[in-house]
């Protein structure tokens, strides 16, 4: 199994480190031809406007949409924004997931926070059901989950911070910044 990480900008090295730690072959993706031979793709944290700008310029938008029709893709934070179909402002989006996202929903950096999150789906990779240490950085919120998309995790107040639609996964937070690899292993199960 070979997993690519979109390496236009952002914390792609952190994702690559986790994948290598759990024994997966990896590749960095900056150009369309680098998608060939991959079984799945992670879109990391970073700035979604920068991803959109570079993906458009290097002709990645359509190839990424095609890839998402047939393969698993997981977006963390900016990656989740990029996967969504609507962010209520004008910027390039892949529109693969039937979710509406609000950018910087918690405010500016001084409001960034960590919390323990209950993610029932992670029991599939670890029966302990221990809470997941979620790191939110100028984080987006999943405002609405529509069509085939489903809620994967919510804050105490019910606001949605993770969603899944078939083999597509979106998280508002950053599992790649923790030493907990359950989300990465959960993503691999969507491919196998």
């Amino acid at each position: 199994m070979k997993i690519g990480v979109l390496a236009l900008q952002g914390d792609f090295l952190e994702h690559l480190d986790v994948l290598r730690r759990i024994g997966v072959e990896t590749a960095e993706v900056r150009l369309p031809e680098q998608l060939h031979g991959l079984d799945g793709l992670i879109i990391p944290g970073g700035e979604s406007t920068t991803f959109g700008n570079l993906a458009q310029h290097y002709g990645l938008m359509e190839p990424l949409r095609q890839f998402g029709q047939e393969h698993a893709i997981w977006g963390t934070c900016a990656g989740a924004i990029f996967l969504s179909k609507d962010v209520r402002r004008s910027q390039p989006l892949l529109g693969l997931m039937d979710i509406v996202v609000e950018r910087n929903a918690f405010g500016r950096q001084v409001a960034s926070f960590e919390t323990d999150l209950d993610v029932p789906a992670l029991r599939q990779v670890d029966p302990s059901g221990a809470p997941f240490p979620a790191i939110f950085i100028r984080a987006p919120l999943i405002e609405a989950v529509q069509g085939e998309a489903q809620v994967l995790a919510q804050l105490d107040d019910g606001r949605i911070v993770a969603a899944q639609q078939g083999r597509l996964l979106a998280t508002s937070f950053h599992p790649e910044l923790t030493s907990d690899d359950r989300f990465h292993r959960y993503f691999l199960r969507l491919i196998a």
């Binding site: 900008q9 914390d11 792609f12 944290g45 970073g46 790191i135 950085i137 910044l177």
Partner: peptide, 12 residues
């Protein structure tokens, strides 16, 4: 959180 925002700026 503080270090994390800088990690999101990498490659930029």
């Amino acid at each position: 959180e503080k270090k994390g925002l800088a990690q999101m700026l990498k490659g930029g």
